[in-house]
Nucleic acid binder design. Structure first.
Lengths: 333, 333
DNA sequence: AGTGCCACCTAGAACGAGCTAGGTCACACT
DNA sequence: AGTGTGACCTAGCTCGTTCTAGGTGGCACT
């Protein structure tokens, strides 16, 4: 026996209210089959006893299409917004949501196993780093939707931003301002990394400019390191495209500390249009991803697939918008 | 009927292996009662069918002390590290962990209700903003441990850093450098906020210095706003204590942009010793919290309480350490 | 040969809820 | 008075698993 006050069961409520167990079930679910007076009475008794329905028992019996399982990386602030959006969509679709975090001690494979063991009807994997083969294996058991990463795997849908197109827009913006020495601080292994690099290459080729890529990463520290490498070499570019906002912030702060003015001497851009991009001393021009819509799309696809709808499109690529702020300006003459 | 491959049950495995259902259970749980040969055979058949035990059915029948429920705020990067630590401790204690996020659409009350509905044996609430009365109400049902916030509520334990003592250390460090006009950019409503303010007041009084508090917050933007207010008034302090690292970063960047040198003209300190504190252009002196130990303590207390141990101490206050970097120096003469 | 014993296995009842198929009762209609 | 006809309620099976209480059978010992 447990010491909690949580061991109140439906049978206890039924006994206390002087009715049968199924009637309590009817009342709790709010389905027709009970008079208003008994309904009120049962509800009152349940509240007094502190009765909370056991979702596990419910799910076991109901055998419905189940809950939506979500795996995300706790340390990624960008994932937080997506989790938020998925919650919202599930809420309004009346679906349970089972959350599991990917951390150092709880890797993605374990995380997804736990979702399967919970009999989730579909899985939303945010920024999954799993190999396509393993994803396909999981997708054979249950519908899988990957968010924020383009994954080519059998039966797996993915939702992401138009990373390639976004970088084309950024380059075009800089070219339009008159820049020609435009450097990209890339992060090839991050979600969207390869696509952004491709977009950069494509747009640079279209403008007949020579490519300049420096390997960075997705953190502020990575941006700072990339800045150090840029400063170490002879000639600086007139514009640097940060892989994302933290990276751009690291670039900007480091270059400023080296005595350069942003944007007068050098322009900087970010990606994500997060809170740090808008701070007064940064004013980063940045690519805005429609995270709300990404989350919604992923959740809706997961729910649809769970309800039996088959895969229609493998990919859902959402448009982005460029938020222009004061970190970009024409190059010095 | 579901379309997934997940509808393989123990009975299916039993039939396919030509044994009884309970025997499969014995094998899957690894308890004595089956010969090695049948054990291997059953395991093989289970793997072939892709059988995954249903944790909900297990939990239903087992009626053990249950899982540890964790509620956290997705947007707080600081919470991520704690979630990570709780996972680790639960893992090595062999406990299931049920995670639920607190977001805009899924408030803390809902989050905790879902943990209760999942029959968690104990709840770890990270940075709970719930009123003491409600926490006590929940704690009457199931043990509750609050992390990173000092909460006085019946039967609720909390684990947090020594916020008060930390601020005493910070002030003493600055006083030791020769500062006398020391300002605190506070965040009274954040976790630890009141304690840090108290520590600041106490240390300032002990050094016979006059108190100077400016209301800020826990974000970079809040720090930037506070800096603007400091600059607007006549005389600047020679040192500013940021409520946490983002706040300190906002202060530092804004003051630098106004032409001040850090630390030559003004010293800045942070709190949390997070990744942003260590970036080369910040080099923030900051208070290091032992997040790993906080998480471990919280998880262990939750598990102990769940197993029937009663509340021993209401509070678990962990020591902190001051990481001294280049953002603090003697004041200008 | 009978008995005990152990190692291995199985039948069937839980767990807490949902659902199907009925049962009871008051009331109105023929 | 007999008979529908609802509205309201209940008995009992079911979900996938664990657990209790019992079978088997083989081997060693009396």
């Amino acid at each position: 026996m447990r010491a909690n006050g949580l061991d109140v069961t439906m049978a206890d409520v039924a006994k206390a209210a002087g009715v049968s167990r199924p009637l309590v079930s009817i009342v709790m679910r709010g389905v027709p089959g009970a008079s208003d007076s008994t309904r009120q009475h049962v509800m009152k008794v349940a509240a007094e006893l502190g009765y909370v329905p056991d979702v596990r028992a419910q799910a076991l019996r109901r055998q419905g299409p189940g809950a939506v399982g979500v795996a995300f990386e706790a340390v990624q602030p960008f994932h937080a917004a997506l989790v938020d959006g998925v919650y919202e969509t599930c809420e309004s679709a009346g679906r349970e949501l089972v959350l599991t975090a990917v951390t150092a001690s709880h890797d993605e494979s374990k995380a997804i196993d736990s979702l399967l063991a919970n009999r989730c009807g579909a899985i939303v994997a945010i920024g999954s780093g799993l190999p396509p083969r393993r994803l396909a294996q999981i997708a054979a058991l249950v519908p899988v939707v990957v968010v924020a990463r383009a994954v080519r795997a059998e039966a797996v849908e993915y939702v992401c931003s138009d990373d390639e197109g976004s970088l084309v827009k950024v380059v075009e913006h800089l070219v339009g301002l008159g820049h020609s020495r435009i450097c990209f601080a890339a992060s090839p292994r991050s979600g969207g990394g390869p696509q952004r690099l491709r977009g950069y290459r494509k747009a640079m080729a279209a403008a007949a400019l020579s490519v300049d890529v420096v390997e960075a990463g997705s953190t502020e520290q990575a941006g700072a390191d990339a800045a150090a490498r840029l400063l170490a070499r002879g000639q600086l570019p007139t514009a640097v495209i940060g892989f994302n906002d933290p990276c751009a912030a690291g670039l900007q702060a480091s270059l400023r500390q080296a005595g350069l003015r942003v944007p007068e001497d050098i322009s900087i851009t970010g990606f994500d249009d997060s809170a740090i991009a808008a701070t007064p001393y940064r004013q980063l021009t940045s690519v805005r991803q429609d995270t709300a819509r990404m989350a919604e799309t992923a959740a809706l696809r997961a729910i649809a697939r769970m309800e039996g709808q088959s895969e229609r499109r493998r990919s859902h690529v959402l448009p982005t918008a460029l938020t222009i702020r004061a970190s970009t300006a024409p190059p010095p003459r």
